[in-house]
């Protein structure tokens, strides 16, 4: 499965990339996160407890099922308003 992964704010700066395509056998969103964390630093930032995520521009949980071509995003807690 191929998915587009986007990063925002502190994660984007830490990783030095705002988006990338990731290939793997992913069933749920957390599989993507774990594959990225396994790359080691600086991707360990995606292991943070309060990480938030989205699938196709909707907030979701880490157990969200994925489909081919999905756009997923990882970001720290939001701070608008």
């Amino acid at each position: 499965m191929n998915v587009k992964v986007m990063y925002f704010a502190r994660y984007r700066e830490r990783l030095g990339v705002d988006a990338e395509r990731v290939e793997g056998a992913f069933a749920v969103l957390d599989d993507v996160r774990q594959a990225l964390v396994a790359r080691g630093a600086p991707y360990d930032v995606l292991g943070e407890q309060n990480l938030m995520c989205a699938r196709n521009e909707e907030l979701c949980k880490l157990d969200e099922p994925l489909e081919e071509g999905d756009e997923v995003a990882f970001f720290p807690p939001v701070t608008g308003g």
Binding site: N50, A73, P76, P77, V78, T79, G80
Partner: peptide, 25 residues
């Protein structure tokens, strides 16, 4: 406002005397 602050994807970066830093949730 309560939902916006916890569900809308905005992130604030403040410019301070110590340099820029991200506001924490």
């Amino acid at each position: 406002m309560d939902y916006l602050k916890t569900r809308a994807p905005f992130w604030k970066k403040e410019m301070t005397g110590d340099g820029p830093h991200w506001v924490e949730g």
